[in-house]
Structures are given as structure tokens and as C-alpha cells.
Design a protein around this nucleic acid. Structure first.
Lengths: 204, 204
DNA sequence: TTAGTAGGGTAAGTAAAACATACCCAAATA
DNA sequence: TATTTGGGTATGTTTTACTTACCCTACTAA
């Protein structure tokens, strides 16, 4: 049903539609998405459940819509932040820092993006995922550029390298998100960059 | 309610209890855990729903129990596999290869462990997670030993290093699990080890 | 002016799922 | 022989997700 969601999906939000999205945003601060019900949202938004169905068809689509707005905003910033930096490794370092910073300052969304959303049916067709892919694309372009310029070794596939970097970042943030530890973007960036840029081997 | 699960939780399986676990194992090959219902399992196991409640209290607990058996088996193998290998980096390489191999040959469980189980309430108190922690513990011990012996640089925290390695591995497997690509443990091990052991920087 | 109609919204239902309880019955034990 | 124990079931009760039919106001075209 997600793809045949009734009526207007993309219009300039009618009040009720916006109230629903705001309600979800607010509820996500209190509990995980999986625990939020139609009734919760309808109640929080002071709106009838039928309206959720009408505008979104599905709770997941409300989430995807909320995430989209959010991720779009950050994507523009990250995109800008890399410009004006010289050298592939320096650019990579900046991206790494940005991600750590993003996950540290937006724990609610980080949790959703890293943990919850990936096994929701339909996510990989969502706008959010498309934006996520453009993050990867940007990173990969930088890597390929670095290889072309001879700044990055050419015997590792850019995809593997990208996966390793993203994986390292995400996994380093998980304990913080799950158990509420603080994470320090500067320290974590330093660690990841040391590992990836300089290797852990003491006697090469 | 999960923690006050009625009656026997750990006994030497009565037939019905075993049938329930087998039913879940079998259903997991067909669809994701979140899509499996009490009715599905009861039907597959040819057993009354009340029995699930009686023995496990909760579908999640059935899953945790199934995972536990499974992960225990692999844990013993991995533990053995590292013994007799000389040198911290060689040991790490073996662990990395083992994990890639494990995820490649058990896609159903890999999907569950990497994607589904982590946002299930109660997972981090489960036996499965305890075993997962002993994997990390083993890895970390190897790292610390490597640092002590001067084989691994000492200015990166073992925890950060472990997170980076595990993250790289897991993230490298995700696309395969999600989109059904094949993954090649040998190639991926080579990539990760090159990155972590030798660094990506061409001009140090 | 008036008859329609589009769009924001609600009341009210349905089917299925999760979660519980009370009970049955056969074998083991006192 | 009386009774407990433990594997198992029949039978609810509530929540949830999802759906339909409809209301009402503002605008639009005849």
C-alpha cells in the first residue's frame, strides 16, 4: 500500500499534514519509532487517525518524510563544507569529522538512521536513502580523485575503502547511541584517520 | 513481560519448545523476523499459540534463543581458529577473514545480527549479545597484546581500533545482505587489511 | 444566485495480531 | 490410590493497523 498512498503526497503541506509530521518528530525524542503507534501520533497531533492514512498511508511514510527534510538540510551543509579544502585526504578527514559531529549532535536521528530505518520495508526506495547515496557518491568521488592524483594508493577498490571508512564511523558511534555514552568527534576523527591514513602497523 | 517469562526458560527442551524454535528457524529463511507472527510460528510448528507464550513469553525470546544456539557454535570455532597463529596482525587477519566468511555463508543470520536484532528491546541483555561481546573481547585482547609486544602502534585506543575494524567488516557486508550481491571473503579481507595494516596514504 | 465540487477533516468500523487465562490429560510420584 | 507435575490446548481480551463512508466549508463555473 505504501506506493499507492492515497492522494497528495508532495503538496505544500496542509496544516494537518504538518501537524502529523511535527507530532512524530516530537514523539521520536521520547521513544523509538517501532514503539510509536497510529494512536500516539493522532493524539499528539490532535488529529484523526484517518488523516494519517489519507496523507501518508502508512506510519513509515511519515518517518521517511520527516527524515527527508532533515537529511536534506545536512546534506547541503556537508556538501559545502568540503569545498575549498585542498587534498583528498584532507577532504576525507573533513567528511569523517562532519559525520562524527552529525551523529554526536543529533542522537535521535542518528539512532534512527543507523539502527531503525534500515530494516523498514521501503526504505531503500525512499528519498532519504537517495540523499544518503549522494553522501556516499561525494565520498567516492573524492577517493577516486585522490587515486587519480596519486594521493591515494590505487590497489584498493574505492568502494571497499568507502565502506571501511563509513563502517568505522558508524560502528564507533553505535555504543554511544545505544548506551548513551558521550562521543568526542575530534578524538574519533583522529583515531579513524590515524588508522586509515597511517596504518596501525608499527614496523612496516 | 519479557523478564517474567512464564515457567521454564532454560530446561532441556520439551518437544513443543523445540518445535517452536525449529519453526522460527525455518520461517526466517522465508521472511524477516519483524514480519513473522505468533500465528505463523504456531502454524508452522503445529502447536498452539499459548505454548509460545508459556515457554518464551514473547516472540523476541524465541529469536534470542535460536540466535544463542547458533552463535555459540560459531564462537567456539572462531576461538579455536585463532590459536596457533603467530603475530598479532596475523591473528587479526584471521579474525577478519572468519567474520567475512561467517557473514557470507550465513546470510540469514548475518542479516538478523547486523540489522534486525539491534533495535529489539531486550537484545542487549540477551545471551547472544554476551557471546558477541566475547568476540569483541578476544579481538581486543589480541590488539592489546599486539601493542604490548610493539607490533601495533600504541597511540590509538584499542577500543577505537576494534570499532573501526568491526565497522569496516560489517559495513562491507551490508550491501551484499541487503541487495543480494555476492561477497568474497578473501577479497574483502585483503582490502580491509591493506587499509588498516598498510594505510591508504601513498606518500607517507 | 445557485449548483456543484474539491479539499481539509472526522466518526466509526474491521480484521488481525499480540498477549493472557483457564483448563485438560497423561504420566510420575507420594 | 490419590495427587501433583508438566506438556499441551481452547478460548478469550485488548491493541493495533488499516479502511471506508461521510461531513462541511470555501470556492468555482453556469
Amino acid at each position: 500500500m505504501a506506493d499507492s498512498a492515497p492522494k497528495s503526497e508532495q503538496r505544500s503541506s496542509p496544516p494537518g499534514r504538518q501537524k502529523i509530521m511535527d507530532a512524530l518528530k516530537s514523539l521520536l525524542k521520547q521513544k523509538e519509532f517501532a514503539a510509536i503507534t497510529w494512536t500516539d501520533i493522532a493524539h499528539e497531533a490532535k488529529v484523526n487517525e484517518g488523516l494519517i492514512y489519507k496523507y501518508f498511508g502508512d506510519l513509515r511514510n511519515v518517518l521517511f518524510q520527516v527524515l527527508k527534510e532533515f537529511v536534506e538540510y545536512y546534506w547541503e551543509r556537508i556538501n559545502l563544507d568540503v569545498r575549498g579544502i585542498e587534498g583528498s585526504l584532507n577532504k576525507l578527514r573533513k567528511i569523517i569529522w562532519n559525520l562524527f559531529y552529525f551523529y554526536a549532535s543529533e542522537p535521535v536521528f542518528a539512532r534512527i538512521l543507523l539502527l531503525e530505518v534500515r530494516n523498514l520495508p521501503g526504505y531503500f526506495d525512499s528519498e532519504t536513502y537517495k540523499i544518503h547515496k549522494s553522501w556516499s557518491r561525494l565520498t567516492r568521488d573524492i577517493i577516486e580523485d585522490g587515486i587519480a592524483k596519486g594521493e591515494i594508493r590505487d590497489d584498493i577498490s574505492p568502494r571497499d575503502l568507502m565502506n571501511a571508512i563509513y563502517g568505522a564511523i558508524e560502528h564507533s558511534c553505535l555504543p554511544g547511541l545505544l548506551f548513551g555514552h558521550k562521543t568526542d568527534p575530534d578524538a574519533l576523527t583522529a583515531s579513524v584517520c590515524k588508522i586509515v591514513f597511517e596504518a596501525i602497523n608499527k614496523h612496516p
